[in-house]
Amino acid sequence: MREISITGGEPLTRKKTALSNKILRELNDLKRKYDNERFSLLPALYLFQREYGWLSAEALEKVGEILGVPKTTVKSVSTFYAMFRHKPMGRHLIQLCTNVSCMIMGCERLTDILKTRYGLGPNATTHDGRFSFLVMECIGVCDIAPAMVVDTDLYGNLTEDSLIGILERYE
């Protein structure tokens, strides 16, 4: 199995997607976890998305290079899944559910607030780069509908006021 290290082989820090030692370590751990390097493709993509917020063409190329998977395959896999993002995102990502339960419980009011208060429509980013907003299909917490995920934090039973209050915490 090929080890990834900063010193050997191609210097990984060259390109714009500078890789931190931390992410490299995690990638190495990932590769050790699976027999086949292809198996670590999805977790590796998640890792990159967590680190950079989205998957740039360069990131896809890099993942392919590190795992020894053709970059076209990486692109094909990553574009198949809706939760991989392929354009730059704001500092914080709001993923608001608009599926049946949340719709019944009034998620439309929440999307209106995002529009009026932050000028934020679905699949858009605020001008200051603070928030991006993605409309989600069911996030699996119908019991606390309407619900959303901001970055990796889950919020439920949302009202107009609580939404604003929560978002104020994310700068």
């Binding site: 053709p70 076209t72 395959t73 692109k75 094909s76 574009t79 198949f80 809706a82």
Partner: peptide, 9 residues
């Protein structure tokens, strides 16, 4: 060559 792939779903 793996130069072509399917994008999207």
């Amino acid at each position: 060559a793996s130069a072509l792939s399917v994008t999207g779903r």
